[in-house]
Amino acid sequence: MNYLIKRILELIPTFLIATLIAFILFSLVGDPFEGMRQDPRLASQVERLKRIYGYDKDPVTRYFLWLYNFFKGEWGYSIMAKRPVFNVVVERIPVSLAMGVANTVLSTLFGILLGIYSALHLYSTADYAATALVFFGMSMPSFFFGVLGLFFFVISWPLFNVGLMTPGFHPEMANLLEKTIEYGRHLMLPILLLTVLGMGGFVRYARSSMLEVLNMDYIRTARAKGLPENVVVRKHALRNALIPIVTLLALTLPGVLGSAPITETIFSINGLGKLFIDALGANDQMTLMANLVISIVLVIFGNLLADILYTVVDPRVSLE
């Protein structure tokens, strides 16, 4: 337990260093508010905003000011949306989360299953198909695949919708079921594409992990005991093969929240990914920073989770 607390305390400096680096990088780009002077309606606010976010002070003070504000929920002002960043970002979370969770769950689940299946049926048709899928998923750029999907399933053969929401759909009036259906119709295609693309890595990883384990001495021992092959595989091989995969799973945590900027942009989904691209175009630094910090936090927690999971699945690793 002691170790766990220490491990969590260690997250603090990691977080500070990562955010500081991001902050410094943005400082190098320049003052985010200068661009606002062109707009006569906003010009008057420039000085006020600069004062609030510490642009009249030295960068170090500004960083700590930013940090303080960040924890208060004041994430800055989006010059693109002309609203507080916090509101802009929070609005985008549900759709990205829905897509991210669905895609992560599906691609890991099917990826691992297929990988293990093909390891157990080496050189079968399924194995070759899995290898092809890996190759396809890992070499195909997502924008190409996305545009292709758009062309076939939305334009030529309109099976799915794009963009959110359907004109005339009022989320505030819909019940949960209607909302789910509405989300589903729009998100199905991108989720499908992301799943196919994302599966490749898991197939390959699970397959090689399982193959490695099947060659271990203790599998031979299990067989030598007289255990039926399915027990050998399920009880002895699977659990060991899953150990490295579980860690990989935790490390995909950041993917749950919009690591699909290109796909979101192609399918006009207003999620965090698209927000990032848009903010990049508009040099909306405070939005970018908030977006980045979310990723940093997820990566850090993913790592912690990976460590903890490791100790759960592998008795050789202890928290002590």
Partner: peptide, 22 residues
């Protein structure tokens, strides 16, 4: 399977890796 591990048992060279770690 009723003979293997029951009437004929086998032990191996590498004791470090012959047992399942989990």
């Amino acid at each position: 399977r009723h003979i293997r591990g029951n009437k004929i048992s086998m032990i191996f060279q590498e004791p470090m890796t012959a047992l399942n770690p989990v």
